[in-house]
């Protein structure tokens, strides 16, 4: 089932929020993880509403608002969010208070803001949107769960769905994740990416033709999955103009190596985690990048890991895996 991305906005550790400066002026990180480049929120969120919002909510509300404005849809038929760790800063804050106060007198704000569905709930509250409101929290498939739901909704007859993927990082959570050794050799990051998903689009809308997700597989099993995906979409490998992969640099990672080797030698490979770093919903950004690549007909030089691009861009594939456990392939076209 096809759906269309009619608007998108992203806050990431690079310049992605301001469309005029998209991936301009490359930033380097002087802390152990990639910290999002956030806009001056006063200009985008009413301070009265913002006072209880942690960064994940501010990032989400800012990008969500931008998508609503860009698409001209003020009341979506559903608000659907994917997040891996949810409002982890407020979770950390409340846990710390439980410990320091020895379960004594605790201030409730961090607790009420800590639930995973605070992001989608805040958006509903701001928009006064009484429609379906869902939050998916499925590790490296959190965003893909949300996207699949949006696609099902279009199938069920919904017209416009506000969809997002967001996670925030803190020094302490980064420290824990690094010590857990689950980063796939990519520094951790954070960000929020929102989309308007619609049943139909115009000439600037990017089509999400298909999405396939699967759990743990061995690197050599991936090829069969790729072949099945291409066959299902009646695609020849030579038709694919570029790949958007969950990499931040050229890597020995067998999954990505196998994936690239399935396509023509010299096919352009954009590494979206160079922008976002690693986190459970980083793959949401791959769709934002894909939309910008197709709309602007370019591969942003700072993301290009290998290959070269000439001619036009019509069909791109996204492939990402989180820790070898959560894999997803998508096909975007314009």
């Amino acid at each position: 089932m096809k759906v269309y991305i009619t608007a998108t906005s992203a806050i990431t550790p690079q310049n992605t929020f301001d469309p005029e400066k998209y991936l301009d002026n490359w930033q380097s990180s002087d802390i152990p993880y990639l910290h999002a480049l956030e806009p001056e929120y006063k200009n985008v969120i009413d301070p009265k509403l913002a006072r209880r919002m942690s960064r994940i909510i501010k990032m989400s509300v800012a990008t969500g608002n931008r998508v609503l404005t860009e698409s001209g849809i003020s009341q979506p038929d559903a608000i659907i969010v994917g997040t891996g760790l949810g409002c982890i800063k407020d979770t950390e804050k409340f846990l710390k208070e439980i410990i320091t106060e020895k379960e004594g007198l605790l201030s409730p704000t961090a607790f009420i803001q800590s639930t995973h569905n605070t992001i989608a709930g805040q958006l509903a509250l701001m928009l006064q949107c009484p429609e379906d409101n869902f939050t998916y929290v499925n590790r490296g498939h959190s965003f893909e769960n949300a996207l699949s739901d949006a696609i099902l909704r279009v199938h069920e007859g919904a017209n416009h769905i506000l969809l997002g993927g967001a996670d925030e990082m803190t020094p302490e959570v980064n420290n824990i994740l690094v010590k857990m050794e689950c980063g796939n050799n990519i520094p951790f990051g954070e960000g929020a990416c929102f989309f308007m998903i619609s049943g139909s689009g115009d000439e600037t809308s990017v089509c999400v033709e298909d999405v396939a997700t699967f759990g743990h597989i061995a690197p050599d099993e991936l090829m069969k999955k790729v072949d099945n995906f291409l066959r299902k979409n009646d695609l020849d490998k030579s038709e694919i103009d570029a790949l958007i992969l969950g990499l931040d640099k050229k890597s020995q990672d067998a999954y990505y190596q196998n994936f690239i080797s399935a396509f023509a030698v010299g096919i352009p490979v954009a590494g979206f985690k160079k922008v976002t770093g690693e986190y459970f919903t980083s793959s949401a950004y791959a769709y934002n990048l894909g939309v910008e690549m197709l709309r602007q007909q370019c591969i942003f030089p700072d993301t290009l890991l290998s290959g070269s691009h000439s001619g036009s861009l019509h069909k791109v594939l996204i492939y990402n895996h989180y820790n070898g456990e959560n894999h997803a392939i998508s096909f975007l076209s314009l």
Binding site: G86, H116, N117, N133, T135, Y136, N138, S148, G215
Partner: peptide, 19 residues
């Protein structure tokens, strides 16, 4: 993931957190 492993489920997995 743990429930799926324990039951040997290989199909679609979704996790929802709406309080």
């Amino acid at each position: 993931a743990k429930i799926a492993d324990a039951l040997d489920l290989k199909g679609t997995l979704q996790t929802i957190s709406t309080a």
